[in-house]
Design a protein around this nucleic acid. Sequence first.
DNA 1: TCGTTAGTTCAAAACTACTGAACTATTGAA
DNA 2: TTCAATAGTTCAGTAGTTTTGAACTAACGA
Lengths: 110, 110
Amino acid sequence: MQPLYHPPMSEVTVEGILYALSDPVRARIFVELANTDCTRACNAFARYGKKKLAKSTLSQHFRVLREAGLIRSERVGVSLQNRSRCDEFRGKHGALVAAIINSYISQKEI
Amino acid sequence: MQPLYHPPMSEVTVEGILYALSDPVRARIFVELANTDCTRACNAFARYGKKKLAKSTLSQHFRVLREAGLIRSERVGVSLQNRSRCDEFRGKHGALVAAIINSYISQKEI
DNA sequence: TCGTTAGTTCAAAACTACTGAACTATTGAA
DNA sequence: TTCAATAGTTCAGTAGTTTTGAACTAACGA
């Protein structure tokens, strides 16, 4: 399998963050990872409300989050363990990411 | 001409704001309107870097910003006068919008 | 080895965005 | 008034993106 690409923080853009988090499925994944501060397999997010997402769709969503610099994914056995990169956002995009998380949480309907 | 729709603040969503501002052309328009706190015609943004945008494209971008609740447009004579709705974001999405504006400004390359 | 589980890749279908051309609306000059 | 100019909008075609099922790879345990 291909190695997973994680951009360094210096390559993370505002536009990339906003784009990645403007999709409700991705926002929900990211907010949950950021809040619980633990790792989760992609699989754990296979349902969005009543809707079941195709594996390929979910795979794409994780790729977008990863390439925006928002999450880090590590292969562990048969699955990926994903976690937020919130701890790496000190200074640069920290305030932005925190504001987005807070807004989604207070809006609830992710 | 059709009347212009401006959603009430109660209908503005985080997702709509992020989506609207994840496009660099729209981000640039919004950040400029928010910063100068004055009105501008759509036309004033016809260039993006070296690129000249089609009138129809620009019209769509303004519609997206308007329908996300980010700007208010008023017909004045032959043109639209657009301004940011930042003053209406007290509380609800205020912190989010402020964080996005600050991030884009400190990133410069809009 | 085989079956199971987890994710990725691929190609087709469905959707969205960009554009030029034709349109509407307002203005100001003849 | 009529005419031309200016500012935006709408429309339809094309270009680009997203979603999906099917086929694939990779790791694990029996």
